[in-house]
Design a protein around this nucleic acid. Sequence first.
DNA 1: AGCGAGGCTGCTG
DNA 2: CCAGCAGCCTCGC
Length: 110
Amino acid sequence: MRRARADTWERFYAVVRKIPRGRVATYGEVAERAGLPGYARQVGWALHALRPGTRVPWQRVVNVRGACSVRLGSGSEFEQRRRLEREGVEFGPGGRIDLGHFGWPRDRAQ
DNA sequence: AGCGAGGCTGCTG
DNA sequence: CCAGCAGCCTCGC
């Protein structure tokens, strides 16, 4: 069988925790770095299922266009943006982040 | 066991 | 950059 769900999610969390402060990574990147390319959607689900109290910088994970994909209405969207801005991440007019500037450089180690 | 939905992505226009 | 289409995996009914 494939990897157990909890095990898979733990990999995602481990990767997310490696994202440097002031940087953001896409779901696809997190999945890829976790050794599970193509699991972008599962990263989203893993963060969705993230329990309060778990120390994971989920706010640094955005979609490939640099926008917060957090489900609207949850209030987390605002929280995410507030946290990122505090880290020095700038948002564009459309509420998007310039991944070319704030994205997590793949060539660099964490 | 089947099916729709979800914090996504890459490829085409 | 946005819209449409298809593929990805897991959850919940």
